[in-house]
Write a protein that binds this DNA or RNA. Structure first.
Length: 373
DNA sequence: CTTGCCGGGAG
DNA sequence: CTCCCGGCAAG
């Protein structure tokens, strides 16, 4: 299985680079993730499907997703198989695995919608259990149609700069891109999937791609105790891309909503590794550390490829790093919460009806200042 | 259930 | 900063 995938997996980082500026890293990652699951026969179809979804997403206006702006979403941090919504739906709990090349996730990306996530499955492919589907539904808090009917006409538009050619078939547009833009005349049948990123799907009917995004909701990178996260340096695109299905559950996994840590920054951010949870065990079950980082200039995401570069200048993009995010998990668990006071409190003394006689702290539901223990 | 109060939002 | 409140945890 993996041997047949190997080729793609190894190429994945290249594609990511090539598609930079056009397609978000995580999309590509997911894209590649999906590859691992498919049998070789399905790959071609899925490749096209996935690419269409990716491009659709990238060109669509972002319909409501206030909490996370494109460049706020977790960017470029998951590697194939890393993005695993667990079945503990209530917690919005994610597992990750080794990100690949984090050094330059310079592309802002639209948040992943549940729809898009699901879209990577072939429509005919039955959900292998409610887990994932239900999870994403719950996670994204929106009733998501299980399937999208395709009664509409679909065209494919080349996104190459100054091109804009529109064809009616994906194969056609791929061939167009391959031959015209990628200059692969001789190897016309060979496709590594790169061209998929340079065209977009156009629906000529009511149902627009926007509806796919309409379900965009706080896909909060709810870092509910992310199990492991290789350091930026620790992960080189080495060969061990495999075995990613390990759902790492830390002892910290809890399902309380207080465990949703929304990473929220305006710019680049970097969450640095030694995430020490006060009063709890280290965060890194397998020894690796946790780190997210990205830097992304405020690029408007138009979906127009900014003249795809095949060789990304190494180390391009200054490593902006602002504040360390990753809020710490609840410390309550270990008695850091002040033990409740024993003495009488304003509330008790004066009662609810005399609330105005309470000390301000009590009125504000803070620790009483009048009857301190 | 009630109570104390933390964490965080609004202004 | 003040003021308020949701919600958690202890009792």
């Amino acid at each position: 299985m993996f041997s047949s995938m190997g080729g793609f997996i190894h190429r994945a980082p290249c594609i990511i680079q090539k598609a930079a500026g056009h397609c978000s890293v995580e999309q590509v990652e997911i894209y590649s993730l999906e590859y691992q699951r498919k049998s070789p026969e399905e790959l071609d179809m899925d490749k096209v499907t996935a690419a269409m979804v990716l491009t659709s997403l990238s060109t669509s206006p972002l319909v409501r997703s206030p909490p996370i702006r494109p460049n706020e979403s977790l960017n470029g941090s998951w590697k194939e198989g890393g993005f695993v919504p667990s079945s503990t739906s209530s917690s919005g709990y994610w597992s990750w695995n080794a990100p690949s090349d984090q050094s330059n996730p310079s592309t802002p990306s639209p948040p992943l919608s549940a729809d898009s996530f699901k879209a990577f499955r072939t429509p005919s492919q039955p959900d292998d259990g409610i887990d994932e589907a239900e999870t994403s539904n719950l996670l994204f808090d929106e009733p998501i149609p299980r399937k999208r009917k395709n009664s509409m006409k679909v065209m494919f538009k080349c996104l190459w700069k100054n091109c804009g050619k529109v064809l009616s078939t994906a194969a056609g547009i791929q061939k167009h891109i391959r031959t015209i833009h990628l200059g692969r005349v001789g190897e016309s049948d060979y496709s590594d999937g790169e061209e998929d990123f340079y065209y977009t799907e156009i629906r000529l009917n009511t149902d627009s791609v926007a509806d796919g995004l309409s379900s965009l909701s706080p896909v909060s990178p709810s870092l509910a105790s992310p199990p492991s996260f290789p350091t930026q340096d620790a992960i080189r695109p080495e060969t061990s891309c495999a075995k990613t299905e390990t759902k790492l559950m830390t002892p910290l996994s809890r399902s309380a909503p207080t465990n949703l840590y929304l990473v929220h920054t305006d710019h680049a951010y970097q969450a640095t590794p030694p995430v020490n949870i006060p009063g709890s065990t280290k965060f890194t079950p397998n020894g690796s550390s946790f780190s997210i980082s990205w830097q992304s200039p405020p690029v408007t995401f138009t979906g127009i490829p900014v003249s795809p570069t095949h060789n990304r200048p190494a180390g391009s993009g200054e490593q902006k790093q602002s504040h360390t995010v990753l809020s710490s998990p609840p410390r309550v668990a270990f008695g850091l919460r002040k033990p409740r006071g024993e003495g009488k409190k304003c509330r008790k003394v004066y009662g609810m009806e005399n609330r105005d006689m309470w000390c301000t702290a009590c009125r504000w539901k803070k620790a009483c200042q009048r009857f301190i223990d």
